[in-house]
Computed example of a mutant assay.
Amino acid sequence: AAVSASRAARLRAVLAGRPGVLLIEDDHGHHFVDLPLHPLAGATDSWALVRSTAKAYGPDLRLAVLTGDAMTIDRVTGRQRLGPGWVSRLLQRAVVELWTSGAVDVPAVSRAYGERRDALVRALAERGVEARGRSGMNVWVPVADETSAVTGLVRAGWAVAPGARFRVASPAAVRVTVSALPDGDLVSLADALAAAAGPAPARSYG
């Protein structure tokens, strides 16, 4: 979710009245989401902001940077000392090089994801499916039944994530990742999603 400036202001106002809450923000969209970050850091006494690199620069770069209040950082450091908390120096240097050398065209990456995401949302709208996706590499597609939609899409040759793991009270949906979607597959994916979004097929036993 990309938090807007106005929503961030409202959230900070709510959190200001609850200083004992531990606030953890995961900025996993750094350098591939084409919207500005509006952090809530500092709205409570205890907070942490994590910025990961794996999605923007490659899944092998399993690194993140962390900042927060002094007590929270001390607690994280203490927990790391109890287990395998060492991070490869080679991977750290690789990330620093990517961040500082301009080796990755960040606006181009963000724009490519945005174009694929928006194209799928438009294609689904043309088929009567009101999908959503405002940032990043995923599209949220409402469906009548998640299990039927996921299995139907697998039969059609597509793998999507059931929405249950990402939602609390919102209706059934599937999450579609477009980061590697070729332009030539857009129409067939939209057709498959539109077919899968409808009611589950009736079953009879007899």
Rank of each mutant, 00 (worst) to 15 (best):
A5N: 07
S6Y: 05
S6C: 15
A8T: 02
R10W: 15
R12C: 10
V14G: 15
L15F: 12
L15Y: 14
A16K: 13
R18Y: 04
R18G: 07
V21H: 15
V21F: 07
L23A: 03
L23I: 02
I24L: 15
I24D: 13
E25T: 14
D26T: 13
H28T: 03
V33E: 14
L35V: 09
L37F: 10
P39S: 15
L40Q: 02
G42A: 12
T44I: 00
T44F: 07
D45H: 13
S46F: 05
W47D: 06
A48C: 06
L49F: 03
K55S: 03
A56N: 09
D69F: 05
M71A: 10
D74M: 09
D74I: 00
G78W: 04
Q80W: 14
P84W: 01
P84F: 00
P84R: 10
W86T: 15
V87A: 13
S88K: 02
R93I: 02
V96F: 11
W99P: 01
W99I: 02
T100E: 11
V106A: 04
A108M: 09
A112K: 01
A112Y: 01
Y113N: 11
Y113S: 02
E115T: 11
R117F: 00
L120E: 12
V121G: 09
V121D: 08
R122G: 07
L124Q: 10
L124T: 00
A125N: 07
E126G: 09
V129T: 01
R134E: 11
S135K: 00
S135I: 06
M137C: 03
W140R: 07
W140Y: 12
V143H: 03
E146H: 05
E146Q: 07
A149T: 05
T151H: 08
G152M: 07
G152H: 08
L153D: 08
L153H: 14
L153K: 06
W158I: 00
A159P: 01
V160W: 02
A161D: 08
A161E: 08
R165K: 11
R165A: 15
R167S: 08
R167M: 01
A173C: 08
R175D: 06
A180H: 14
P182L: 04
D183E: 01
D183Q: 06
D183F: 04
D183L: 03
D185Y: 10
V187E: 14
V187R: 06
V187C: 04
S188D: 15
A190Q: 09
L193E: 05
A195Y: 00
A196Y: 04
A196N: 01
A197K: 12
A197T: 03
P199V: 03
P199I: 12
R203T: 14
